[in-house]
Design a protein around this nucleic acid. Structure first.
Lengths: 228, 228
DNA sequence: GTGAGAATACTCGAACTCAAGTAATCGATG
DNA sequence: CATCGATTACTTGAGTTCGAGTATTCTCAC
């Protein structure tokens, strides 16, 4: 037996139906109205399949099929007892137990060496500019909402977003500083690798050359066991 | 015509084949050896389907089908000219242009009000403990690697991870402080909502009651237009 | 009263994800 | 020298996700 959907959108559905029964389109409309689309990815395809899956698992159930005017029929769903318990337990573990996630930028950083160092540096500079702008608008939106009296409970997610963005901006700024002032180690070897590549050397020759020219940069490979 | 796979694992494949031709299993082994599994999710099913899709799009091509002993046949892949260009451009945009992502914890924060405030607070406290521990081990690993002489180029992704983790720890600590010293607004209304719910009041009655008891907490709803 | 565009309410198929399974070989231990 | 577990190398299939498409209805200017 398959377990419940793992898409956080399903959790949002449970929370909404915990409040009041409604039909799928109303769920998406409510989530958008409350600005939850910033923190939960809402996709119609996913929404309908998630609702179907929750129904199959008995966490929600179809209540009535109302129709208004000539509009297509809308099925109203309500949460079940099992659904309430599942919602509480799912939300609880999401809050307390961190899950490993894979931001694309982290992947990009880990593959960065495939680019020439000057190019990579320039791209990181561009990102810094972009993220500083994003941080400013994001922070501004939160502050303006608080300024008109919105209680903080309604904006925690956005405070979190701001915190992460600020951390990334700081990270980028200090990384770029280190690259410029030479305290970012390994840069010379990285540079040389691309020079040799440009000269048409084969990968094996490159490896050989780098191993002799930058011995100190590879000595750690023999000490990997010390990391336990 | 469908576009290339969007899975960062496909980018990793392109980068690896840019270095040297190899077969799928060797790709996963190399990525694991270089600790890229921490920043890129490696899944066999995904790997093979991603390789197939890259082949179909002409970004990589099968070279030879070597077999060693009685082992199953291994198809060796190499990157094409199109693949090289695509790799450079994909990696470049990933580095410079931020993409919106949806951390599960952000979703959980935005739905937190479905839990009783004391429970939510306790869960956040537990998370803080967990993330402090995670931060310590992560930071430690990076430092130990640098201590045996690994150049920083090989560890940027992990420095980034540490930066994000540290930001989350700070966020949690200050959020919990604010909840405890009362500077986290909206808490009283949140609390009252769950009391009324526990008393068996209907959803509409709760709304009415809160609207009168906590007028100031909802006044901002009439000023939403000021946010432009 | 009519046409343009926004909003409403879904549907579809292709791509992607992921856990589990398979089946061979290698290495070490008793 | 047998065998047990680790490693190598991949396959399958069920379930999920996603963007794009469709078709209707409402709204409001003209």
């Amino acid at each position: 037996m398959a377990s419940r959907p793992s898409n956080p959108l399903a959790l949002a559905v449970l929370v909404l139906l915990y409040e009041r029964p409604m039909h799928p389109y109303q769920m998406s409309a409510t989530l958008k109205e409350r600005r939850k689309e910033d923190s939960i990815k809402i996709n119609y395809g996913s929404l309908y399949s998630v609702v179907e899956s929750l129904t199959k698992h008995g966490l929600i159930e179809a209540r009535e099929s109302a129709r208004e005017g000539n509009r297509p029929e809308r099925t109203i769903y309500a949460i079940t007892g099992d659904g309430e318990r599942e919602m509480i337990s799912w939300l609880s573990t999401l809050l307390s137990d961190p899950v490993k996630e894979y931001p694309q930028f982290e992947a990009a950083l880990s593959l960065m060496m495939a680019l020439r160092p000057e190019q990579a540096t320039e791209l990181l500079e561009r990102r810094l500019v972009n993220q500083r702008a994003a941080l400013d608008t994001c922070r501004d939106q939160v502050n303006r909402a608080y300024a008109i009296g919105m209680p903080r409970v309604f904006g925690v997610e956005h405070e979190f977003e701001v915190a992460l963005l600020a951390a990334e901006v700081d990270f980028l700024a200090s990384l770029l500083d280190d690259i410029r002032d030479g305290s970012f180690s390994g840069l010379a070897g990285w540079q040389r690798m691309h020079e040799l590549r440009a000269e048409g050397m084969t990968r094996d020759e490159i490896e050989q050359t780098l191993f002799t020219e930058f011995k100190e940069d590879f000595a750690w490979l023999d000490r990997l066991d010390e990391l336990t």
